[in-house]
Amino acid sequence: MKIKEIGNLLDAVCLTGESHLDSEVISACCSDMMSDVLAYVKDQGVLITGLINPQVIRTANMMDMICIVFVRGKKPTEEMVELAEECGIAVMCTEKRAFEASGILYAAGLSRSAEGKHV
């Protein structure tokens, strides 16, 4: 799935540049606990979270994630968006809650791991 499709599916507003939107992702992780993202994420390309602080961007960067979806209408700061741009991470915001956003993306084909891709 392309990152721009995630934006369409979630009625999300993209806050970073156009350049990332054609990148492909096949899996996602949903968590507000960055400790768990660091401990359990292996090859997920998308982070779905409602947590707002610069460590969300840095954590995604450490885990080689390329897209962050902020749920529940949470808005990242300008500093966070700039950092994401520097790290090559697409950032988008949706009014949907984490459960709904995750469900929509799962139903559309995103999996929890690259190996365990469901059909």
């Binding site: 507000d32 606990m33 960055m34 400790s35 768990d36 660091l38 401990a39 947590l51 602080n53 460590q55 969300v56 954590t59």
Partner: peptide, 14 residues
């Protein structure tokens, strides 16, 4: 610290 998304006790093992 937990409210900031850290402190799950996974740092050292990780």
């Amino acid at each position: 610290i937990r409210n900031l998304g850290f402190g799950a006790g996974m740092g050292f093992p990780n």
